[in-house]
């Protein structure tokens, strides 16, 4: 399943986040790349949902397969939105920090 790609995103490691955002470490699997992969996952699952629905409309596919694919796409999108929300929140917290 395409959602598996998210499992490898290694979002929980602070070291990766700093490396990724500062771009200081050459070729490191940083946060920006993780976010990119997450968006790729959204595109992939949306494409799969599209295919499943088209198959169903062409009378080749099952209703449950289409619904499961749609749900996968929705879940991946929600996960991405949550991570984006957390990222923006963290950024705003830092920007509000008095120096």
């Amino acid at each position: 399943m395409s959602i598996n790609a998210i499992a490898g995103a290694r979002l929980a490691q602070p070291g990766n986040i700093t490396q990724g955002l500062s771009k200081s470490a050459g070729g490191a699997d940083g946060f920006a790349q993780s976010l990119g992969r997450l968006i790729e996952g959204v595109e992939e699952t949306t494409g799969a949902a599209n295919t499943a629905v088209t198959d169903m409309l062409n009378k080749n596919g099952d209703v449950h397969d289409a619904m499961i694919a749609l749900h996968h796409a929705e879940t991946t999108l929600q996960l991405t939105v949550q991570i984006r929300n957390k990222l923006v929140q963290a950024y705003q917290d830092i920007m509000r920090m008095p120096v």
């Binding site: 399943m1 959602i3 598996n4 099952d62 449950h64 397969d65 499961i68 996968h72």
Partner: peptide, 20 residues
């Protein structure tokens, strides 16, 4: 997520089998 999507896949295969 990996485990959950595998579980959904298993249930989906059962849905197809029952449909048959």
């Amino acid at each position: 997520m990996g485990t959950l999507s595998a579980a959904v896949k298993a249930s989906g295969s059962a849905l197809a089998a029952e449909r048959t």
